[in-house]
Nucleic acid binder design. Structure first.
Lengths: 367, 367
DNA sequence: TAAGTCTTCGTAAACGTTACCGATAGGTGA
DNA sequence: TCACCTATCGGTAACGTTTACGAAGACTTA
């Protein structure tokens, strides 16, 4: 039924399917104009309006222009909701990350947003707060919203991947970045975790540091593993011993970082350099070392991953391997849209986002 | 037509409205299970399935349980899209901010997310990148997505508000925060801009600083105005002269901040303290002053707004007025849901989020 | 002028869900 | 036995949009 007219009308028997409807005028101003409104005012059918607004064929220029003009006046914009509903797509992608507040992820989001906008997509963001349970709920919610694709960086708790494996097999386009899941063959954005760690440690060695310790993150995280491998590989290349007491897995917390420093200082041979895989830990260690009166970089060299403004400001400034988070986001989004637009070619396709070694005072023993 | 059956059937004449449809089997695995699928498998109608899944009355416990069990097995989740479409709401709110990467806004977003999740809403985020044009486009897009409400912090370019005024008058629930628009009577989240500035400047005066300069943001921004008013008010209270040459409006850029310092140093009476309303500018000035060999806090006191980790790390550590961004987000979202749930009581309702003065070395002349 | 072609527009199905109304069956009361 | 009630379930309109199909008019061609 359209504003008083019957909607379904059997022509062979003149039977009306809908009863009369008493038009109770709702005085509420409506937020959205619909093509139905336009059609009624213009005295044409909704199909004609739709054709006019979409610049389809089968319409006279005169009608088209008139309709477009009216649509502009009523500042009509199509209900993307209904449109997506009709076409089976939502023009929306979902993003699951551990925490928005972390500068790395904020940068990634920014990159995602930019590329999504260019493609005419909107972005729905969820944070897991490093909780597996929340992550599952988030993905469930995004799924219920019928996102066209998913961009995921897992929580550090996540060790079971049956949910996303299931979704992947059902054909939901998705791409992993940063906190990657190697159990599902989704396209992934790789960062130079191994390479960066290698370069950082090699740089320390070249500066004359001999006893280099690593403060890694949770052992389940791939970035922990990769960066540790880079660390070990650099030591091996330069024939330095690999000592278990120099390798610690933490939880990225400040408490753990400082406790590790304490523990290392108790050793008969304390390390003369520390590679903290998280830049925040590196900054915290710098501050702590100064409190303890340990000279940086003379007595202790410090390097880390991730170049936030902090690394530049702390004294001495921190040598880091920078990961270009915005770039990661852009590439991840671009890859996702690639998958969305041609699902057939869904073979695994990894992309490497290059980083850059930025040398500052905290590691310059030779000056 | 539903899987081979005719859809519209006139009972009084046995006329079928739809022609036969050759079922071309699509081999593609479908991502989403629908109630139609469940209905077909169970041999019941979609109405029954809907009732069962929503725990409505008019259904036998046996049927309900069986349907719910099957739904679980097929891991069905309702298409929130279609549901919202049907009920005229989307359970989605839109957020427009200048930039995700700024820690303040990241914090706000985090707070918004949390409250939205509690209310069963999803969040759609757009960044204007401080461009008026982008902002308008963003809002247009969110509107097209039929968000149930809007949370806005304007770009620094935005001076015309006809778009949101229009939307507000049409009854779209929305709330302003941080970069507020005073021309539209939306509910607003106020921060202690005046109070914070007042406390910061009074603190400087109590420390013995006499010639206090202010580096403000764009004059159009309300936070610039409010913080400047607090600055002036504190000076007046303590009978200090208000000198135009000590009051500068910039664009928050590093270049402008450093140029301002240079200009101030050229004065016959250079300021002995600087209040930068943006913490980043404050940090940049600290670094620059050190380069110039100006002792902080003895020769120059520095204070700012916004307490990021940076303020703690920079040397000397920065005295700030902290704004609790997460809290701002939480309160803004809560207020928005308030408006959404009872539109009648849409009178203007402002909420004040309190801040806190955090004193550190950069302003401790007396030590 | 009859038949065919092209232009332009209307009709209604479809997407997934909810809600209203009606239908059916079984039970209960007189 | 018949009317009435209740529990349970089915049918389908509606939300806004796109689109396949058909219809009607205008125009062209033989």
């Amino acid at each position: 039924m359209i504003r008083g007219k019957v909607r379904f009308h059997c022509k062979s028997c003149d039977y009306h399917f809908t009863q009369e409807h008493t038009e109770k005028a709702s005085p509420q101003k409506q937020v959205h104009t619909t093509i139905k409104d336009i059609a009624q005012i213009m005295g044409v059918s909704i199909a004609t309006v739709s054709r006019a607004l979409n610049n389809k064929a089968d319409i006279s220029p005169k009608t088209r222009d008139a309709i477009q003009k009216l649509a502009l006046e009523l500042d009509y914009n199509p209900n993307l909701f209904a449109k997506g509903f009709q076409r089976g797509e939502t023009k929306t992608i979902g993003v699951v990350i551990p925490n928005i507040k972390r500068p790395f992820f904020a940068g990634v989001l920014s990159g995602i947003q930019e590329v999504a906008n260019e493609h005419g997509y909107r972005v729905m963001i969820c944070q897991s707060n490093e909780s597996y349970e929340t992550e599952v709920t988030n993905i469930q919610g995004l799924l219920a919203s019928h996102v066209d694709g998913l961009l995921i960086s897992h929580s550090k708790e996540t060790t079971r991947f049956n949910q996303i494996k299931n979704l992947f097999e059902k054909g939901l386009p998705m791409v992993h970045f940063d906190r990657i899941c190697s159990e599902v063959e989704t396209p992934k954005i790789r960062q130079e975790d191994f390479e960066g760690a290698f370069q950082l440690v090699e740089h320390l060695i070249q500066q004359g540091y001999q006893r280099i310790a690593i403060l890694a993150g949770p052992p389940e995280l791939l970035i922990s593993q990769k960066r540790k491998e880079g660390y070990i590989s650099a030591l091996e290349k330069h024939d330095l011993p690999i000592k278990p007491e120099y390798m610690v897995h933490g939880d990225f917390s400040k408490e753990f970082a400082l406790a590790s420093v304490d523990a290392w200082q108790q050793l008969p041979e304390p390390p003369d350099a520390i590679f903290a895989i998280h830049y925040l830990n590196a900054v915290e260690i710098i501050q702590y070392a100064k409190e303890l009166g340990i000279e940086i970089p003379q007595k202790l060299g410090i390097v880390g991953f991730g170049d936030e403004y902090l690394a530049e400001i702390v004294e001495p400034a921190l040598t880091v391997f920078h990961l270009f988070p915005q770039k990661v986001g852009e590439v991840a989004a671009a890859l996702l849209f690639d998958v969305i637009s041609n699902k057939e070619a869904r073979q695994q396709k990894d992309v490497l986002v290059q980083g850059q070694l930025i040398i500052r005072k905290s590691s310059l023993k030779k000056g």
